[in-house]
Design a protein around this nucleic acid. Structure first.
Lengths: 231, 231
DNA sequence: GTCTATAACGAGATAGAC
DNA sequence: GTCTATCTCGTTATAGAC
């Protein structure tokens, strides 16, 4: 890459980042449904048509924000995992849960963009699938480690759930028993459900000590997943 | 009440219902953020200023829709409870969970209105608190019955959670042990979290047999709440 | 080739005069 | 309650600067 191309690419990346930053600002102020290319352009000092050099449509801008958000939670989870003790699986689990919650509380609007109500009229393209699965992969990795070293044991599967469990295991982790994989999916939904309740205000005037409450839920989910002995 | 007043009241109720129906239609099409009094007025054949006789502001219309939605899930839960066997607590639990999920899947946009991302710029007034708690009260009622007849036993509370648990019990159910009440709150969040994941499309291309999966989650939560023996 | 600006379209919202 | 003038929006075509 010559220096001219490098400079161009750098400038382009910088402008792209400026546009996304402003878009995120407006996201926080007015919500994803009202995100407007024109308003973003006005605010960054460009004319609206110039934005189309960077994002071919409003939906593409939204997609970029969504991908960034998934990548940000994913990275938060991965960083927390890397910093956690290598063999203490419950501690690793707690660390990742806390990191996801902390990111969500710090970025409520971006969290809402990816885990909240769908944006009307927008349908996510394939590009979001990869980034969207990063947190899930971190969680499944912890279970894999725990399973291979500690031989966690889970209650037997109900017959009605077995086919689905086997399908899930084939899709998500062929090396893990189906019971572990369904449990992970269930626990995954419950974890984000609890975070969503807090971020979206459902705990308002109900739960006060939310740090303690969340840690308790994370521990419950870790137990459900077999990371801790059931009591 | 004279017949003239009765007729007037009837007409008013009818028009109010028409307005709300149209508003719900637009909610489904464009999302709560874009709900516009003018568009609703146009669609029901009134002029926008006439709508203000029925709803003094856009937020009041939104509040009415929210209250209706909470009442609808609440009623679904209560009806399911009434139809369930009187003494089989796990069966009652499952019935209520299924009813809530069924309502959510049948009314995804109204569900998003109350359990999804908050509507930007809207803040819920006190009027929503009562209706919002109906499902919770149903769930807590089942636990109360189970606790008084079967003496469910839950694991001891962590010291860090005890103060919050006692506060919750004082607020929500003074006749139940704090451990039961925190567990209920945790399980409540997890239940709606799972439903939200399904309604908001997070299970897309992941969970296929969602009926079986949900029943499994409901059973897990029932066990967590002490309704079934832990295994 | 890469970018930005001007101008315009069709559609919808909004404010105010009447 | 009606009408109109003036905004906004996403998007495109076109022309010209670097």
């Amino acid at each position: 890459m010559t220096s001219v191309q490098g400079a161009r690419a750098r400038a382009r990346a910088e402008i792209t980042a400026t546009i996304k930053d402003e878009a995120r600002r407006q996201l926080a102020a007015d919500g994803a449904a009202k995100l407007s290319l024109r308003a973003v352009a006005r605010e960054v000092g460009m004319v609206s048509s110039a934005l189309y050099r960077y994002f071919p449509s409003r939906d593409d801008l939204l997609t970029a924000l969504i991908v960034d958000a998934y990548d940000a939670v994913g990275e938060a989870a991965e960083t927390a995992l890397a910093a956690a003790p290598k063999t203490d699986h419950p501690a690793r689990w707690t660390a990742v849960c806390r990191a996801v919650r902390a990111w969500a509380l710090a970025h409520p609007h971006e969290y809402a963009l990816i885990y909240g109500s769908p944006v009307p009229g927008y349908s996510a393209p394939q590009d979001t699938i990869g980034p969207a699965s990063r947190v899930g992969l971190v969680l499944i990795g912890i279970l894999r480690d725990a399973y291979t070293t500690d031989r966690v044991s889970l209650p037997p599967l109900d017959d009605r759930l077995r086919p689905e469990a086997e399908r899930l295991a084939a899709d998500l982790a062929t090396d893990l028993p189906p019971a572990v994989v369904v449990t992970l999916v269930a626990v995954w939904a419950q974890l984000f459900g609890t975070i969503s309740f807090e971020v979206f205000g459902q705990f308002h005037r109900i739960v006060e000590d939310r740090d303690a409450f969340f840690d308790d839920v994370a521990a419950r989910l870790g137990r459900e997943a077999g990371l801790l002995p059931r009591r």
